[in-house]
């Protein structure tokens, strides 16, 4: 491994450590001992099979959204819309599962997975189309479409598919054939085959991007639209395809959350998985392996901070957002890590 590659891996790691340290220092303000907070965090994330299972459970949607952002990024697009895509994808899985509750179990999860991918994909293709054909920027469009997706999901849930047995804003439960089994090894944590699906998806994304012609063309468009055109690649088509794939990947969040977890679509179930996906992709350098690793880190943060409410006096799980934010800032702030001494050393040579 050459030095450049080593630095490429090392730098985000250093950034993560710095970001986390800054976040833990913040807890000093609340009169907590950062070391104590850290130990609660670690114990809560990795302390038992159950805890680790929960970490993986939280990591699952982040792998999907991270891959979603990464694929779009390789096509030169910023997918801020994973939140809306995953909302509608999950809703689609839940609605299918509730409406055709009698579907046999050998086919039901597959159908629901496809539905989640398809609906997420369509929702993702919209900003792709808008960018490709109307020239309007996907960042703003995806943000706007997040709100629109929220509105649609809320309307459909409350007006069409509402679970009348509870007061909660959620859809009717899915049929038993749709549920995918959770892994007993993790002592009751809802980690299921959805996690395996996430890992497989990461592998598939890697193969697609680096071994196939469409993947190459997608990355070429992301690098240079002009050069891609000269190579007889249609950037419009590629952009729409990329955003459709990105949307579909985000939609797969529904598999773990609906089929493997709650068994229904709950309004507002996602604690910003879509936005955290941006951080996951960034930290993972948009490489599938990196995305998986980063997703597990953020899953651990999410799980780890969950117990802070009980174990500390002033620090609540909201600190999770602070930690994540600081990690993102440190990772993205490239200029912060132009190590001066390193440059000096090279200058001397």
């Amino acid at each position: 491994m050459n030095r450049g590659r080593l630095l490429e891996i090392l730098r985000p790691l250093v950034a993560v450590v710095i970001g986390l340290s800054l976040g833990l220092l913040v807890t000093l303000v609340a009169g907590e001992n950062p070391i104590h907070v850290l130990s609660v965090l670690l114990k809560s994330a990795f302390g038992s099979r159950y805890d680790f299972g929960m970490t993986l459970y939280y990591a699952t949607p982040l792998i999907f959204t991270g891959l979603s952002v990464a694929v779009a990024f390789h096509a030169g697009l910023f997918n801020i819309g994973a939140e809306g895509q995953l909302t509608l994808g999950a809703l689609a899985a839940a609605v299918l599962g509730a409406s055709f509750a009698g579907t046999p179990s050998w086919i039901a999860p597959i159908l629901a997975t496809l539905a989640a991918f398809l609906i997420g994909g369509i929702w993702g293709a919209i900003p792709g189309w808008l960018r490709a054909k109307r020239g309007s920027h996907e960042v703003i469009n995806t943000i706007m479409l997040n709100f629109i997706a929220g509105g649609i999901a809320s309307y459909l849930t409350l007006y069409w598919f509402r679970n009348l047995e509870t007061q909660n804003p959620e859809t009717r439960p899915i049929g038993p054939g749709f549920a995918i089994s959770q892994w007993a090894f993790f002592g009751g944590a809802p980690v299921s085959w959805a996690f395996a699906l996430a890992l497989l998806t990461a592998l598939a994304v890697w193969v697609f991007l680096w071994k196939t012609v469409p993947g190459y063309e997608l990355r070429a468009v992301g690098q240079s639209e002009g050069a891609a055109r000269v190579a007889r690649i249609d950037p419009a088509k590629v952009r729409i395809l990329a955003m459709a794939i990105a949307g579909g990947l985000a939609g797969l969040v529904g598999v773990g959350e609906v089929l493997g977890g709650a068994g229904k679509f709950k309004l507002g179930f996602s604690p910003d998985y879509g936005f955290i996906g941006i951080a996951v992709a960034l930290l993972g350098r948009n490489r599938p392996v990196g995305v998986v690793a980063a997703a597990i880190l953020f899953g651990a943060l999410h799980k780890g901070t969950a117990d802070l409410d009980l174990e500390t006096e002033h620090v609540t799980r909201d600190i999770s957002l602070v930690l994540q934010a600081l990690v993102i800032l440190c990772v993205s702030a490239e200029g912060l890590f132009h190590l001066r001494w390193l440059r000096k050393k090279r200058a001397a040579q």
Binding site: R219, A220, Q223, S224, G226, A227, R229, V230
Partner: peptide, 8 residues
């Protein structure tokens, strides 16, 4: 602009 993928 049109000839190369500079970061590839």
């Amino acid at each position: 602009r049109d000839g190369l993928l500079l970061e590839r």
